[in-house]
């Protein structure tokens, strides 16, 4: 659209009419462009205001939050954050969340990549379908049976119980994304390797895997974020030392009464790491989220 308007002035065989048209067009153009920017601005505001409000409130004390005449003017305080880290041991929870998310993602990749390859190349479609059901089934279905399984193998209250349960989200996602990735690789590459005498595994490790690094990163990041955000599984399976952030924030609400400032500070602490990751690797997140959908 911009191109056509730019070209018009060059085309000056009928200067007068063209000047009129140009003026009219540029006026419409300006109106259109500014309307568009206005709309975009509105969208941006709608997207971020809950975050802004969360952040602002986390620097307010209880009185500033609950007396309504000063929505924006207040003396910022760091007490909420101090409270979060000193009284509530958030550093430990932060670490727990990180360990669980990182390890469950790694394990999901270790299990998921060969599985996706197997499904793509060796007709293990049924496995893919079973993994997909994990996406459809409501999460609470799993809690009691898992507890029994983990109890029997002695993993309750350990990081492992959390890690394995979070893999239920991560693994299917990774497989789901990686199957089309492997399918799209030309078979000839691997077959050439096989003819050269390499084993199937060499072909997988040296050819298929290196070619699919972007997919691995994309699906890995999504898996990490899902794990970081998980509430239901952690609620039941975490012990006191392994409690993750989403569970910890729930404890905040009930210690005495609703401490909004502390609650918002805790919410900020949970959210910030994910937001930072997002800022740095946004392209992969987009790829991950959309690949899962469009390649299905």
């Amino acid at each position: 659209m911009t191109n056509t308007t730019l070209q018009r002035p060059l085309n000056n065989t009928h200067p007068t009419t063209n000047q009129i048209r140009l003026r009219r067009f540029s006026w419409r153009q300006t109106a259109f462009v500014s309307a568009r920017y206005l709309a975009i601005l509105l969208v941006v505001i709608l997207l971020i205001f809950p975050f802004v409000w969360m952040l602002l409130s986390s620097f307010k004390n209880q009185i500033d939050i609950t007396t309504s005449d000063n929505l924006l003017s207040f003396t910022p305080t760091l007490r909420n954050y101090q409270n979060v880290f000193e009284q509530h041991n958030y550093l430990q929870y932060l670490l727990n969340s990180f360990i669980v998310a990182a390890v469950s993602t790694q394990l999901s990749l270790i299990l998921g990549l060969p599985a996706a390859y197997g499904i793509a190349r060796f007709r293990f479609g049924w496995l893919g379908i079973v993994l997909l059901t994990a996406r459809i089934i409501p999460g609470i279905t799993f809690l009691i049976p898992w507890y029994i399984v983990f109890g029997k193998i002695g993993l309750l209250g350990t990081y492992w119980a959390l890690i394995l349960s979070h893999m239920l989200v991560g693994l299917p996602f990774i497989v789901w994304i990686m199957i089309p990735f492997f399918e799209s690789l030309p078979r000839e590459l691997e077959e050439a390797a096989l003819i050269d005498g390499s084993s199937v595994f060499k072909a997988f490790f040296h050819i298929a895997l290196p070619l699919s690094v972007p997919g691995m990163i994309a699906s890995g990041i999504i898996s990490f974020i899902f794990s970081w955000n998980n509430f239901m599984f952690s609620l039941v399976l975490a012990g006191d030392d392994t409690r993750t952030l989403p569970i910890a924030i729930f404890n905040f609400i009930s210690y005495s009464s609703v401490d909004w400032g502390g609650l918002m500070a805790a919410a900020v602490v949970i959210t910030v790491p994910v937001l930072i990751i997002t800022l740095f690797v946004q392209r992969y997140i987009v790829d991950g989220l959309t690949a899962g959908a469009t390649k299905g």
């Binding site: 969360m54 918002m264 805790a266």
Partner: peptide, 26 residues
């Protein structure tokens, strides 16, 4: 980038923020 934020933010945490914004008196 901004458009990704609501999706990746921890639902429990962000729900707390909405809870505060919905609060009828404050």
């Amino acid at each position: 980038v901004l458009i990704l934020l609501p999706m990746v933010a921890t639902p429990v945490a962000i729900s707390m923020a909405w809870l505060l914004m919905f609060e009828p008196t404050v």
